[in-house]
Simulated scan of single mutants.
Amino acid sequence: MHALLNAIATMALPTDAQRIFHGRGGLYPGCEQWSLDAYPPVLVLTSFEPCSDEVLATIHSALAARWQDLAPGQALNWVYQCRTEGQLSETRLMAGEVPEPHVVLEAGARYQVHVLKGQNHGLFLDMAEGRRWVREFVQERRALKPELKVLNLFAYTCAFSVAALQAGAHKVVNMDMSAGALGIGRQNHRLNELPTGTDAGASFLAHDIFNSWGKITRGGPYELIILDPPSYQKGSFVATKDYARLMRRLPDLLASGGHAMLCLNTPKLDTAFLKDQMQELAPELQFVERVANPAVFADVSAERSLKVLIYKTPG
Results as ranks from 00 to 15, higher is better:
residue 65 A to L: 02
residue 57 A to G: 07
residue 49 E to K: 12
residue 52 S to L: 02
residue 65 A to V: 03
residue 68 Q to P: 04
residue 65 A to T: 04
residue 47 S to W: 09
residue 60 H to G: 11
residue 44 V to G: 12
residue 59 I to R: 02
residue 50 P to K: 01
residue 45 L to Q: 12
residue 41 P to D: 05
residue 52 S to K: 02
residue 57 A to D: 10
residue 61 S to N: 08
residue 60 H to W: 04
residue 53 D to V: 07
residue 63 L to T: 01
residue 39 Y to N: 12
residue 54 E to P: 11
residue 58 T to F: 02
residue 56 L to R: 05
residue 57 A to Q: 11
residue 68 Q to S: 10
residue 63 L to M: 05
residue 44 V to F: 14
residue 45 L to D: 13
residue 61 S to K: 01
residue 48 F to H: 11
residue 50 P to S: 09
residue 51 C to S: 13
residue 40 P to K: 08
residue 40 P to R: 10
residue 50 P to I: 04
residue 66 R to C: 00
residue 57 A to P: 08
residue 44 V to D: 14
residue 39 Y to I: 01
residue 44 V to A: 15
residue 39 Y to V: 10
residue 42 V to E: 13
residue 61 S to Q: 10
residue 59 I to S: 00
residue 42 V to W: 09
residue 63 L to H: 00
residue 53 D to W: 03
residue 64 A to M: 09
residue 48 F to W: 05
residue 68 Q to N: 07
residue 68 Q to I: 00
residue 47 S to V: 09
residue 57 A to H: 01
residue 59 I to Y: 00
residue 65 A to P: 05
residue 48 F to G: 10
residue 56 L to H: 09
residue 38 A to P: 13
residue 38 A to Q: 14
residue 62 A to Y: 08
residue 68 Q to C: 03
residue 41 P to Y: 06
residue 41 P to F: 10
residue 45 L to A: 15
residue 42 V to G: 12
residue 56 L to A: 08
residue 68 Q to T: 08
residue 56 L to F: 00
residue 39 Y to T: 03
residue 53 D to C: 09
residue 66 R to H: 07
residue 59 I to W: 02
residue 46 T to D: 15
residue 65 A to R: 04
residue 40 P to Q: 05
residue 67 W to C: 06
residue 62 A to D: 01
residue 54 E to L: 11
residue 48 F to L: 00
residue 49 E to W: 07
residue 51 C to Q: 04
residue 51 C to M: 09
residue 43 L to W: 03
residue 47 S to T: 15
residue 50 P to E: 02
residue 59 I to V: 00
residue 40 P to C: 06
residue 41 P to S: 11
residue 42 V to R: 12
residue 57 A to V: 00
residue 65 A to C: 04
residue 42 V to A: 13
residue 57 A to K: 02
residue 57 A to I: 01
residue 39 Y to W: 11
residue 51 C to I: 06
residue 62 A to P: 01
residue 54 E to T: 08
residue 62 A to V: 06
residue 43 L to E: 00
residue 53 D to R: 11
residue 57 A to N: 02
residue 62 A to L: 03
residue 58 T to D: 14
residue 66 R to I: 04
residue 40 P to S: 13
residue 67 W to I: 09
residue 63 L to D: 07
residue 63 L to R: 03
residue 50 P to A: 06
residue 47 S to C: 10
residue 45 L to Y: 14
residue 52 S to G: 03
residue 59 I to T: 04
residue 57 A to L: 02
residue 68 Q to A: 02
residue 60 H to D: 09
residue 51 C to V: 12
residue 64 A to K: 07
residue 49 E to A: 07
residue 45 L to G: 12
residue 42 V to S: 14
residue 52 S to D: 03
residue 52 S to C: 00
residue 38 A to Y: 14
residue 53 D to G: 11
residue 55 V to A: 13
residue 64 A to S: 13
residue 48 F to V: 09
residue 38 A to T: 09
